[in-house]
Design a protein around this nucleic acid. Sequence first.
DNA 1: TCTGGGGTCCTAGGACCC
DNA 2: TCTGGGGTCCTAGGACCC
Length: 425
Amino acid sequence: MENKIFALVDCNNFFASCERVFNPALKNKPVVVLSNNDGCVIARSNEAKALGIEMGAPIFKCQDLIRRHHVHVYSSNFVLYGDMSRRVMNTLAQCTPQMEVYSIDEAFLSLDGFKQEGLFDYVRSIRVKVYLNTGLPVSIGVAPTKTLAKIANRIAKKQASTGGVFCLTEEEDINHWLKTIDVGDVWGIGHEKTKDLKRHGIDNAYGLKVADDEWIKKHLSIVSLKTVWELRGISCLPIEEMVPDKKSIATTRSFGREVQTLDELKEAIAAYVSKAAEKLRDQASVCGYLQVFVNSNPFKGQNYYSNSAGVLLSPPTAYTGKLIEAGHRLLEGIYRPEFSYKKAGVFLMNLQPEAVEQGDLFEEAYHNSRRQRLMRTVDAYNRRLANHGGIFMAAEGIIQPWYMNQTHKSKRFTTRWDELLEISI
DNA sequence: TCTGGGGTCCTAGGACCC
DNA sequence: TCTGGGGTCCTAGGACCC
């Protein structure tokens, strides 16, 4: 049997690097990108990491470091990052017959059948190609399983001497490196499992590799057993080329400021439902269960309120108007005027393909209805024009005073004619 | 003043049934 | 005193990932 070879390509500090592509002055400077609502740090350039700015740290706790070291701060710009991701993935798709887009900044490539001699050079050429096409630096780890490729990638990223590419293929080599990897840094081993493993004397990835199968199955799970086998070089997780339909869709956001009135909450719920319904129609599904939640600020410590409510939708639908109506009814049931609200969200669940939906005795099905045609027209228009809002439901509001804070947002350089990069000479 | 968002899968436990 | 056993299905919550 032919040996399997996986490459994991991972963009370095992806969001921060995207900002850098369009602003060369950021080169070698500390850069951080914030979560929605400018809340936490979700990406850091190496320089920012070196300053001790932690991943996930609330920005107000780093204010001092940021001022002192002139850290460049950006609000998240997912339109830009999404488009840059698409460019990276398009480049990678040219480098292998089989790949899996694993996340916005990561992809697994199958390099089965490659001869050992040319492998390293080929992988290096992929790295160069991505950089030339997009301006983004990536690290690439190569190994006989996905889990080991993740580890090889980590080594490529941490050890400058690797030049961003690391192959982990020889058994002896693998064992040597696994001993240097904390067990909690193994893909699939999270915080809780790490504690459990360390209590039983398994501290590094090598310890996990040689652990007893029965013990792992009993104390962790069948999923972790696959992880262990993968560390042994037995591939259990294949490349998943097909992107399966989502089973649930969520849109949840914190507000830019506290919200008190039912009217404002209704606007927000309408806007979130609208966004979620768009994702729903993107995969040609209808939704059979809608859930809405609100909560006050959990960090205030006192007077916390959180509640949710859901409703079955019959027949299932993807019509924004109907979903908003249902969302508003749910909201009215859980709204309490004596609280102020910091966050709200909607979940679409019980999703199914629109074409096979079940009929309902009293109401017209969504599929092939006039409402479906209306939504298709709106979606097509918004996709093409995508300028300044497009078509939206009046219920979403226009001013949207509750909208999240994005004080440091860069332009959508790659997707908007009016936000193209300008260069002065 | 200021603390993200969006997913999947697994498991434990309750309800229910025979 | 002594009070079965096993199966399925559903749900909520946990754990993990990026």
